[in-house]
Every structure is written in structure tokens, then in C-alpha cells.
Design a protein around this nucleic acid. Structure first.
Lengths: 105, 105
DNA sequence: ACCGTATTTCTAGAATATTCGAAATATGAA
DNA sequence: TTCATATTTCGAATATTCTAGAAATACGGT
């Protein structure tokens, strides 16, 4: 994952409202959850909710599938895993640069 | 971790400049890296760098220790792990709500 | 074609973030 | 105490984000 993509995803998750949406969808699992149900649960005005959902879709953290008149949202687990991997990647690889007398823990 | 703390940390990581700072420190490991070296590496004006470092310190993602005239920054690995754990926690626990005919994967 | 429900798009004001030069502060050395 | 280096704080311009009401669109049913 490129650093700008990671930053965009982290920024998307960095808003409390969006994070609540995302966490609700992560808990919802493969079944996902329609926008309308998210609205009931989180008590967010429809336009605000739609705006934030759009942001999460734009960075690939969630996806939407239309089922009749409702739009069901799903957390994209691969993207989440990629983001988590990005955060911990290459941890300590430059450690020797500053402490030549110590070996890795 | 409370959701607002998680959101604040994700927001801190969601800025490309701050994410570069953070990733550099994660790679630097326990040895950490002084602000001045971060500045050389990332080519960021001192005041901008200081501003962003302050943001990362404020949410507990990094810490600073003075060594003489330099301030050495360290990634706080426990905070990172806590954040990662938060993101994946309770994954799919509500899955049954929407798909009563399916069992968990 | 028309209606009702679901959801998005439009719009705009308020709030917040980003950037960085200049000035201020901190530390250790001479 | 004076200096040099390291870093932060101040201040201000610019840009972006957040929020939500109102209007528009999408879909399935009648």
C-alpha cells in the first residue's frame, strides 16, 4: 500500500462519526448493513451519513451493494488488513542506525 | 481504547506528513530519532515539523526524550498495538443479525 | 404513470487544519 | 555571559472538512 493511500484511509477513519460507521460495519460482518439501518442506529441525519459513507467508499474501506431500494454497506476486510499491515511494516528495521551496540529485541 | 481516542489517533496518522514522520519513527525502533534528523530526512520546515510532532505526541503515538540539546522522538508501540487491536475488535460479532440462515465463516 | 421509501446531491455557513516565516526559548559549551 | 545549535511558539494566510436542510434521484410496487 502506498503511503498516500494509507494516509487517506487513516484520515477516513479519523473522524469519530466515520469511525462509528465503520466499526458498526466491521461488527456487522459479511452480512453488511443498509444505510437506513446505520442511520437508525447512529442517529445521524441522512445527508451527513451519506457524506461520510461516501468518504469510506472512496478510500476502499467499505463497499456498497444495492438490494432493491436499499443500499447495503460492507466493510472491506482486505483493505483493513492491508492498512494494519502497513502500520506495523518494517518496524525497527532502521534501529541499528542509532544504536550500533544493541541487537534487535 | 475509547472510540474518540482511537479516532484522534487515526486522524493524527491520516495526514501524509504526519504519517511519514510516524513511519520513519516506527522504522527507527527503540533508538528513536531526533527532531533535527527527521527534518533532514523529510525536508520539512522546522515549524511545520514541530507542529506535526506535537500532534502525534498529544495522542500518545510517539514520545519525546530530551538528550542534551536534541529531542529524541520514539514511536509508542503499545499505543500502535492498541489501535490495531481496536480496529479489528469484535469483527463480525453482529453477523447473525442480518443473515439468520448462515453460520459464521 | 404515479406513489412511497431509500438514498444522494446540492448548497452554504461555521469550524478546523495546514503551512511556514519570524521570533522566542532551551541547552550546553567557551 | 555570550554564543551556537536545536526546537518550539506565535501569527496569519489559505485550504479543507463538517454539518445538515432542501431538493433531486433511484427503485419497486400499484
Amino acid at each position: 500500500m502506498k503511503i498516500d493511500d494509507a494516509a487517506a484511509r487513516l484520515e477516513a477513519l479519523g473522524n469519530p462519526t466515520r469511525l462509528k460507521i465503520y466499526r458498526t460495519l466491521v461488527r456487522a460482518g459479511r452480512a453488511g448493513m443498509p444505510v437506513g439501518r446505520l442511520q437508525e442506529r447512529l442517529k445521524i441525519p441522512a445527508s451527513t451519513l451519506s457524506h461520510h459513507v461516501k468518504g469510506l467508499v472512496a478510500v476502499g474501506l467499505i463497499s456498497q451493494v444495492r438490494e432493491g431500494t436499499t443500499l447495503v454497506c460492507h466493510a472491506e476486510y482486505d483493505t483493513m488488513q492491508g492498512l494494519v499491515d502497513f502500520l506495523v511494516a518494517e518496524c525497527c528495521v532502521d534501529e541499528k542506525e542509532c544504536t550500533p551496540t544493541q541487537t534487535a529485541a
